[in-house]
């Protein structure tokens, strides 16, 4: 099956064409080729969200999946993220959930939040 995609690796937004042999055309850079292949075989996304934080000056601490997870798991990952509550202080890169939903990917904090 052939696919026409818009590359989302960078803001340039190249229009990719992926043929049945997974040959990618229309990409400006090699990352576009990798994205094109990935997107038609196993699409993945980085999920960013927030978790409730206690003892900081704001109510929420931003988090992300450390690397992309399968697109089909996005809502499962969101459900796990929304169950968590953490305490300040927290720093960028701190693991909030280890191996979320069996993806092998950690949820990590993306903001330094001190205890006040």
């Amino acid at each position: 099956m052939e696919h026409d995609l818009i590359c989302i690796v960078c803001p340039r937004g190249c229009h990719l064409h992926v043929d049945e042999n997974l040959k990618v055309t229309g990409n400006f850079c090699p990352r576009g080729e990798a994205y094109g292949k990935q997107e038609v075989t196993n699409p993945t996304r980085v999920v960013t969200s927030t978790v409730k934080i206690n003892g900081s000056d704001l109510a929420m601490c931003p988090v992300k999946t450390f690397s992309p997870i399968p697109k089909g798991k996005i809502f499962d990952v969101m459900a796990s993220i929304n169950k968590v509550e953490i305490d300040a202080p927290v720093h960028i890169g701190d693991v909030i959930i280890h191996d979320v939903c069996g993806t092998g990917v950690d949820i990590v904090a993306t903001r330094d939040m001190e205890r006040i």
């Binding site: 960078c10 980085v46 960013t48 931003p62 992300k64 993306t110």
Partner: peptide, 25 residues
């Protein structure tokens, strides 16, 4: 940047994909 928790920042500045709060920090 602190409320822009999504990723996609920093590709040309830091050659990696950061969220808004990470870029700000």
């Amino acid at each position: 940047l602190n409320q822009c928790i999504h990723n996609g920042f920093g590709l040309s500045e830091f050659k990696e994909e950061l969220t808004g709060p990470e870029f700000a920090s």
